[in-house]
Amino acid sequence: MGDRPPSIEVPDVVGMTGREARALCRGLGLFLGYFNMDQQLPQTMVIAYQEPPPGTSAAPATAVRIWTTLDPLPGDRGSQ
């Protein structure tokens, strides 16, 4: 019980592939969550946005949600 740190600094995963980000987050004690929970995490697509932002303190086992370069970013309503 004394093994886990009280908080973990969220890494910057923007620019990484899903596979790289998952390995990094897992190694730190965090989870990686894809914004579209109905689809499988795209392992080779590049991450364009994440939440919570890098440098944020998070509890162990917190999910870092990601959006890839092909996903609509949060707040993007499609200006067409």
Score class of each variant (00 low, 15 high):
3 D>K: 08
65 R>E: 09
40 Q>K: 08
46 V>T: 15
56 T>M: 10
45 M>W: 08
71 D>R: 00
60 P>K: 07
76 D>I: 02
59 A>E: 15
47 I>D: 00
35 F>T: 05
18 G>Q: 03
23 A>W: 00
13 V>G: 00
48 A>W: 01
61 A>S: 15
42 P>I: 05
10 V>K: 02
41 L>G: 05
73 L>M: 04
75 G>D: 05
55 G>W: 08
3 D>T: 08
4 R>K: 14
1 M>R: 10
20 E>L: 07
43 Q>E: 14
55 G>Q: 07
25 C>R: 01
34 Y>A: 00
51 E>Q: 13
60 P>H: 12
51 E>I: 00
51 E>L: 10
46 V>Q: 13
5 P>T: 07
1 M>V: 09
16 M>G: 07
74 P>S: 03
28 L>K: 15
9 E>G: 05
16 M>S: 13
27 G>Q: 06
34 Y>T: 02
25 C>N: 14
71 D>G: 03
72 P>Q: 09
74 P>C: 00
32 L>G: 06
70 L>A: 14
11 P>R: 04
66 I>C: 14
60 P>W: 09
38 D>C: 05
6 P>S: 12
50 Q>M: 04
12 D>C: 05
28 L>Y: 01
4 R>D: 05
45 M>T: 07
32 L>W: 05
2 G>W: 09
47 I>R: 02
13 V>Y: 02
42 P>M: 07
61 A>I: 02
32 L>C: 10
37 M>F: 12
75 G>V: 06
23 A>P: 01
77 R>C: 10
63 A>F: 12
33 G>T: 04
44 T>Y: 09
61 A>C: 10
32 L>D: 00
9 E>L: 12
22 R>F: 10
55 G>M: 12
28 L>G: 06
80 Q>A: 14
46 V>Y: 02
21 A>S: 14
22 R>H: 07
51 E>G: 00
69 T>E: 09
72 P>S: 09
2 G>E: 14
60 P>G: 12
64 V>G: 02
24 L>S: 09
8 I>A: 03
53 P>K: 10
33 G>I: 00
41 L>R: 05
18 G>F: 08
22 R>I: 00
69 T>M: 05
33 G>M: 07
19 R>V: 06
58 A>D: 00
55 G>D: 06
12 D>E: 13
75 G>S: 11
71 D>W: 01
46 V>K: 15
58 A>V: 03
40 Q>A: 11
15 G>E: 13
42 P>G: 02
32 L>H: 02
6 P>Q: 06
70 L>F: 04
67 W>C: 02
70 L>T: 13
50 Q>D: 03
80 Q>M: 11
75 G>K: 07
70 L>E: 05
10 V>F: 02
58 A>P: 01
41 L>K: 08
36 N>L: 12
47 I>N: 01
49 Y>Q: 00
16 M>R: 11
55 G>Y: 07
39 Q>F: 06
49 Y>W: 11
31 F>N: 11
50 Q>I: 03
8 I>V: 15
16 M>H: 11
65 R>N: 11
47 I>P: 04
